[in-house]
Simulated assay, not measured.
Amino acid sequence: MRIVVALGGNALQRRGEPMTVAGQRHNIAVACKSLAPVAQEHELVITHGNGPQVGLLALQAAAYDEVSAYPFDVLGAQTDGMIGYLVEQELGNLVPPDKPLATVVTMVVVDAEDPAFAAPTKFVGPGYPAETADELGARRGWVFRQDGAAWRRVVPSPKPQRIVEIRPIEWLLAQGCVVIAAGGGGIPTAYVGGGSTLTGIEAVIDKDRASAVLAQELAADLLVIATDVDAVYLDWGTPGQRAVSRVHPDALDPGLFPAGSMGPKVEAAAQFARATGRPAAIGSLDQLTSMLDGDGGTRISVQTEGMEIR
């Protein structure tokens, strides 16, 4: 099978942990234990988030001086290489030495007029107390929203339209290579003003939405969106919460879930299933084998009628 696995942020940076390279390497090594068997038996493409990392790089650059601050497309390219390197190394240590791995720094085209630019929703960077967030927002013009007990910066998250490097990704897969691509949702680029020149744009693309576009363009057999819960839950966090085991893409409304977390995952999985007729699964990475078998997590498929709750 050809499988696209989107690693959730918890695979790189667990909530509340300091953003150190050692911590990220440890989390990636744990994730790769689940990915290694899949890499040896299937065609595998790995995508990943970069919210904490790209936000920290932006903060570091802004602390140096305002002129030197890097735009988010350049920061996205930095995190593509940095995180891809860690995934390559840790996964490479678990698969046979002759198994090739490659990271593709991936540009993703968005619409420069996407309404998301007027309503930022994508969390980036570390969490702050409310007072610190207020001070940073006033001083730098940043927008903050509450994420759990902390406040984090939010930036525009336009919808991905297509993957620029789709042909080299296809070629690498044909050579038996495990490919790490569209990291952090890919580098946001657009044709500004109706022109023909592609240019970077200030945004962070949701990695689940980009993963769905990538999986669709690759004609993947399965899209897996790995997160830190074992399934999609209705009424999450309440005494009446219920896990969804199987669901038709039209039977689960993404609007029922938070825009900054589960909402885009449900939307992306449903988009892929609806467009291709192939299934998507949402669940924890330690369920990867069972999700491949059709049992674990929440399976979104046009072959399912309505919704099944467990």
Rank of each mutant, 00 (worst) to 15 (best):
residue 245 S to R: 13
residue 239 P to M: 10
residue 214 L to M: 02
residue 234 L to M: 10
residue 228 D to L: 05
residue 250 D to H: 12
residue 221 D to W: 03
residue 227 T to M: 08
residue 215 A to H: 02
residue 255 G to A: 06
residue 235 D to M: 06
residue 242 R to E: 12
residue 249 P to E: 07
residue 208 D to F: 00
residue 216 Q to L: 05
residue 246 R to V: 07
residue 219 A to L: 06
residue 221 D to A: 04
residue 247 V to C: 12
residue 251 A to R: 15
residue 255 G to N: 05
residue 216 Q to V: 04
residue 228 D to N: 14
residue 225 I to H: 00
residue 257 F to M: 04
residue 232 V to D: 07
residue 222 L to I: 02
residue 239 P to T: 13
residue 216 Q to H: 09
residue 247 V to W: 15
residue 238 T to A: 11
residue 216 Q to T: 12
residue 248 H to L: 05
residue 212 A to C: 02
residue 217 E to H: 04
residue 246 R to P: 08
residue 224 V to P: 03
residue 217 E to Q: 10
residue 225 I to W: 01
residue 231 A to W: 14
residue 210 A to N: 03
residue 247 V to M: 11
residue 244 V to K: 12
residue 255 G to E: 05
residue 236 W to Y: 15
residue 223 L to V: 00
residue 244 V to G: 10
residue 214 L to C: 01
residue 257 F to L: 03
residue 221 D to G: 08
residue 252 L to P: 14
residue 217 E to I: 03
residue 250 D to N: 10
residue 239 P to F: 13
residue 246 R to F: 14
residue 253 D to G: 13
residue 253 D to E: 11
residue 233 Y to Q: 10
residue 214 L to H: 02
residue 220 A to Q: 02
residue 231 A to K: 12
residue 256 L to G: 08
residue 233 Y to W: 09
residue 255 G to Y: 05
residue 223 L to G: 01
residue 231 A to S: 14
residue 250 D to W: 06
